[in-house]
Amino acid sequence: MQTKNIIEIASCVFKYPQSQRIILDINPFHVRSGGHLFLHGKSGSGKTTFLNILCGITEPLQSNIKILETDFSNLTPSQKDRFRADNYGTIFQQFNLLPYLSVKENIALSCGFSKQKTYHVSDMEEEIERLMSALDLASSLLNKQAMHLSVGEQQRVAVARALIGAPKIIIADEPTSALDSDAKESFMKLLFAQIEAQGSTLLFVSHDKELSSYFETDYDFSKFNKALS
C-alpha cells in the first residue's frame, strides 16, 4: 500500500501585520500518513506561529499547504474552523481543559464541535471510559471538575480529548514541559501507544531534544525556518 502524504507544505510565509520583518518562511516538507514528526527548536523560533497557521487560526502572508488532500491555503476561515474540528486533536503545554467542566464533559467537548468525530464514536460513555483506562486515569475522575486534577492527570485528559473521535492529525505543542521526568516518560509511552492504535499522524513540537528518541523523523525548526537563517 502506498503511504499518502497527510501534510504537504510547498511554502508558508508569515509576518505580523504592523511589522516589515518576515518571521516565518518554511522550507518545503511533508508528513506521511501515520508518521510521527518531531519539531524541536528554541523558543521564539516561530514553532507556535507555525502550528497556529496549520490549525487555521493564524492567517499566513502567503502559503501553499495541502492537508489531507485538501487545499488548506484556500479555505475560508470558517471552513478552516470546521476542518480543524473534524480532523485535528490538540494538546498543549498546560491549561488544556475548561476548569469548570467535568473530565467527562471536557473529553466529549471535542465531539461537540464536530459531527465527523461524533460519527466515529458509537457510544460516547464507553469510548470515554476506554480512553481513560488506556491512559491510566481512574474512572473515579470522570465526574470530577478539571480544576481539581493534578497537572499530570490534566495532560492525560487532554490526550483523551485529542484522541476521541479518531482525528487523523494530532498536534502536540510542548505537552510534556509541565511534567517531571518520570511523568514525562509514562506520558510519552501512553501517547504513542494510543496514537499508533488509532493510526493518527502526530506533529509534536518541543524545545526538549531528549524527546527525539521517540520519533522516526526529527527536524530542527531553526533550520526549517528560512527566516531565521
Binding site: 490549525c55 487560526i57 470558517s78 474552523d81 470546521r82 480543524r84 474540528a85 473534524d86 485535528y88 490538540t90 498543549f92 491549561f95 488544556n96 481543559l97 475548561l98 467537548l109 471535542s110 461537540g112 464541535f113 464536530s114 480529548r161
Partner: peptide
C-alpha cells in the same frame, strides 16, 4: 481552548 477544538 474552544477555538482550538473547532469553535467557529
Amino acid at each position: 481552548i474552544l477555538r482550538t477544538l473547532g469553535a467557529t
